[in-house]
């Protein structure tokens, strides 16, 4: 990895020079770095908006994911009724939903948060549901002989046991959440990294566009790292 990054940067630097590709088609890394420095305030302003959308989306999708997974895991009737609908919802192309969400919720943060929630709701709910139903049978039998109710079993056994599953879903969601926010911003927005990408593209500022992509990649990587560290610390804390 450490060797690959400088090598890739070198190739990226050499290719436009050797092929004579103009900077508005493929700017070299030096130009992109320069754009990062020149437009750092602009990038920071738009980054902040995208971060807010992503965090709000993660928070809301987590709440919705918990509610849905608990409902599906606690009631066979609910599972039989909702699970096919839940799976069917994944067939809908999310990109096609973005204009509708903008139409319904406007150009503000809401439509981007909704898009983020739609994209990450499934991985969170699915991993959590799997973890909830995979409670060891022996624990359930023990709880039964101890006279516990279904709610007590859910609260004291199933949910604590499902926390590692939730952490896995959240790690996955941390990777997909920026995609949701960016799709929302592409369709209709006045702020955010997705909007800035379109703006830079329209003005043939390809170096700024590349700078935005780099910021977005760094954001996704940081978000995944932070979620991994927090969930690992939390899970270690409950285990140790």
């Amino acid at each position: 990895m450490r060797a690959a990054v400088p090598l890739l940067l070198l190739i990226w630097y050499i290719v436009p020079i050797l092929t004579g590709t103009p900077p508005f088609i493929l700017p070299g890394p030096d130009r992109v770095l320069q754009a990062l420095w020149t437009h750092h305030r602009l990038l920071a302003d738009h980054l902040l908006i995208t971060i807010i959308e992503i965090l709000a989306g993660l928070f809301l999708a987590s709440i919705l994911g918990w509610c849905s997974a608990i409902l599906l895991a606690s009631s066979r009737t609910a599972c039989r009724f909702f699970q096919p609908l839940f799976l069917f919802s994944q067939i809908i192309p999310f990109f096609a939903l973005a204009p509708i969400l903008t139409l319904w919720l406007g150009y503000g943060l809401s439509s981007k948060i909704a898009m983020t929630v739609i994209i990450i709701y499934f991985p969170i709910t699915s991993t959590l549901f799997d973890a909830l139903i995979k409670t060891p049978e022996g624990w359930l039998e023990l709880a039964h002989t101890m006279g516990a109710s279904r709610m007590q079993i859910l609260y004291r056994i199933r949910i604590p046991n499902a926390l590692p599953g939730f952490a896995s879903g959240l790690r996955l969601a941390a990777v997909y959440a920026p995609m949701g926010a960016i799709i929302g911003e592409w369709v209709g927005a006045s702020h955010g990294l997705g909007y800035l990408m379109l703006l830079a593209n329209g003005q043939a500022q390809t170096d700024l566009m590349f700078a935005t992509v780099i910021i977005l990649a760094a954001l996704t990587l940081s978000l995944h790292t932070v979620v991994t560290i927090i969930s690992r610390r939390f899970l270690d804390h409950i285990k140790d």
Partner: peptide
């Protein structure tokens, strides 16, 4: 026998958390 019986199995079934 409900409420008058308890069980101990081969696995200890301790809650890791």
């Amino acid at each position: 026998l409900n409420g008058r019986i308890t069980m101990m199995a081969q696995a200890d079934f301790l809650m890791p958390w």
